[in-house]
Design a protein around this nucleic acid. Structure first.
Length: 454
RNA sequence: GGCUGAGUGGCAGAGUGGUCAUGCAGCGGAUUGCAAAUCCGUCUACGCCGGUUCGAUUCCGACCUCAGCCUCCA
């Protein structure tokens, strides 16, 4: 197995610290708004990665945090006039619903900042004792990046480059303008007592503290969206390695950015699309496949056409399996399985692995040997990626419709009567009528089924 | 300005020093009352300029273009 390591910039052979076990920490989200498709991309990608590692037989400990203490939450909660933690709880619930809809497995541990203040304070104290933390007068507590010789190793940046950044706002309490807050002095919003006074953790420290608590001072994989690489992950490394004097995560993984119709999606541009919006029109597996059709590190440009293309691909797979009964007895086709694994093992090359499955599905069809071991293997492999887990019928009927099932069945029955009497004009009229309501009819041998129009 | 990455056929998207990516879409045909699905056949490619090589989309160099990060962001 090879994985691209953002820290070294190279594809490396993956060697977990403990044989056949993987410890992985992924930066989760800050719950102050609905889950958007950028989140979906990152967490679906890591979901597939974890599923695949388990499929290969690794014992995975997967930790994904929730940053529930944060400026954005506090501000939004204030606007709504409710306590910050109540506000974030509401969006945590939404997040869980959306992730469930998307078929994303729950992590083994999902720690929240508000439950780990003790660990965070203790890490800051440790940094203070070792001389990496400072404050001037009664200011916030800062991390002193100049004391950490490796600062910038992840993002490949020198201290000079950082201080030369144009947009840096000068803060007179800081020794270096890229120093960042460990403990923010605050009496407003949500706060806790600390050795430095009332306040709350700065952004970054929570991930260092929580990953170490659940995975140990050194663990295998740390990941997140590419936009977190700097400064968030750089700062996590600084805090953790200075506090523990050890190496922290050995491998860093970053998912590529998602753009909307060729424009950057960002909070400041307010052009984000929510998962709930997508799921109104598209089955969750369509979104999953849309992402997997591109390598996890490449940028993706979201577009409706892209989703429709993914849907056509998924339709083919579902069609293949809706026509035939999956055999009860089967043996896996080892060659096919190995080919798939070998493609996917190479830095989780999902597009390549999927292309094998697509080509394979075509061969399976033309070969005519539909209830073979091969076909079953195809399903096992698709399932391993979180695809083809629904019933074909549900899949094809997914979405909102004007007509009820009963109304549709009545019209189908009327049409079949007309067909029986060779009144094809009437039959076609009914077909058109249903089509206008978004329903497509298909006459299989002796039976008519319906699907939602794409 | 600094750092990083990318430029492949109508679209998405792998890969490779020399015979096919793959899929979707399109086109022609078979099949179907009409459709759908399926089957058969079929077209279009590697940003630009040099270099290395018997041969480069693949290696090297310059150039152009685009994106991400350097500000909240997954």
């Amino acid at each position: 197995m090879k994985i691209f390591n953002s820290l070294t910039g190279k594809k490396e052979t993956f060697k977990p610290k403990i044989k056949r076990e993987v410890s992985i920490y992924i930066c989760g989200l800050t719950p102050y708004d609905d889950v958007h498709i950028g989140h979906a991309r990152t967490f679906i990608n890591f979901d597939v990665i974890v599923k695949f590692l388990r499929f290969l037989g690794f014992k995975v400990k997967y930790v994904r945090n929730i940053t529930d203490v944060d400026d954005k939450i506090i501000n939004r909660a204030k606007e709504e006039g409710i306590p910050a933690l109540d506000f974030s709880k509401k969006f945590i619930k939404e997040m869980h619903n959306d992730f469930f809809s998307l078929g994303i497995d729950s992590p083994d541990v999902e720690p929240k900042v508000s439950d780990h203040i003790k660990e965070i304070i203790s890490m800051i104290q440790s940094l203070e004792e070792k001389g990496y933390a400072y404050r001037k007068n009664e200011s916030d507590v800062y991390f002193d990046i100049q004391k950490f010789k490796d600062y910038g190793k992840l993002a490949n940046r020198t201290l000079d480059q950082l201080s030369a950044a144009e947009r840096t706002i000068k803060d007179l309490n800081k020794k270096h303008q890229a120093d960042f807050v460990l403990w923010k002095m605050d009496t407003d919003g949500i706060t806790w007592p600390s050795p430095w006074g009332e306040g709350r953790p700065g952004w970054h420290i929570e991930c260092s503290a929580m990953s170490i608590k659940y995975l140990g001072e050194e663990f295998d994989i740390h990941g997140g969206g590419l936009d977190l690489k700097f400064p968030h992950h750089e700062n996590e490394i600084a805090q953790a390695e200075c506090a523990t004097e050890r190496n922290f995560a050995s491998l860093w993984m970053h998912t590529g950015p998602l753009r909307i119709e060729d424009k950057k999606m960002s909070k400041s541009l307010k052009n984000f699309i929510t998962v709930k919006d997508i799921l109104k029109d598209f089955h969750p597996e369509v979104l999953r496949l849309f992402f997997l059709l591109t390598h996890y590190r490449s940028p993706i440009s979201y577009s409706k056409e892209g989703l429709e293309n993914a849907k056509r691909v998924l339709d083919k797979f579902y069609t293949l399996f809706s026509d035939i009964k999956t055999p009860r007895k089967f043996n896996e086709d080892k060659t096919f399985r190995e080919e798939f694994i070998s493609a996917f093992q190479d830095d989780f090359n999902s597009p390549k692995a999927l292309s094998l499955l697509q080509a394979y599905a075509a061969n399976t069809e033309s070969g005519g040997d539909l209830s073979s071991d091969k076909l079953f293997t195809l399903k096992v492999l698709l399932n391993s990626l979180g695809l083809l887990l629904d019933e074909a019928e549900n899949y094809f009927k997914y979405g909102e419709l004007e007509l009820s099932d009963r109304e549709i069945e009545k019209l189908i029955s009327d049409r079949n009567d007309a067909r029986g009497n060779k009144k094809f004009d009437l039959a076609d009229k009914i077909r058109d009528q249903l089509l206008k309501k978004g329903i497509v009819l298909e006459d299989l041998d002796g039976k008519t089924i319906w699907k939602k129009k794409s």
